[in-house]
Amino acid sequence: MKEVKEYEKDLASIRTMMERSAKFISLSGLSGVLAGVYALAGAVIAYFITYYPVSPFQYRIYSIQEPDKLWKLLVLASAVLLASIATGLWLSIRKARLHGVKLWNATSKSLLLNISIPLVAGGIFILALLYNGHFGIAAPASLIFYGLALIQGSSNTYDEVRYLGISEIALGLIASFFAGFGLLFWALGFGVLHIVYGAIMYNKYDR
């Protein structure tokens, strides 16, 4: 018969095994904060490309139609996205090494598959919106589909990701009624919300 201490260890090991195997714990809160900072910087540059000299809080009646500006925005958005993914990947690799787990495991595979379904669907849908000239609700649509992806992926990682997803969807729905303020809502959703939730996660799990 084992010592009681051993039974306590059994109980503790059940807990760690369940969490470690089902959750992608290598996700770093810091990557959320940095992604938010990149998004805000991108939004400021985008403001100077499109709205300037009109105040960002003012309603913009004419949506961007010039191909020159559209290309600039596309390059800018891709740069923000790539920087965020690269930072997230780098910080996750670092955290995985710290915990002594592999980054590419059954959990991260299922996480990636789960989030890519709403992301790809949303991406194609937004392309269709742009193709048909509905520029006004492209930004709200990206917030909504991103939120859906986060909720889909949240079962494989920290609970905060679920709340972030719900916030993004709510913001996207509000934004869809204020089509002229796309950039402002976009900066709130991808910038401010990422920084807030990233900071919460960093405080809770990374320190």
């Binding site: 059994d10 090991s13 059940i14 095994m17 195997s21 089902a22 059954a106 959990t107």
Partner: peptide, 16 residues
């Protein structure tokens, strides 16, 4: 303990 840990993983995940 190893068997207990195996079962923990299989209960937290659909399959492994």
């Amino acid at each position: 303990r190893v068997r207990l840990q195996i079962m923990s993983v299989l209960i937290a995940n659909d399959s492994y």
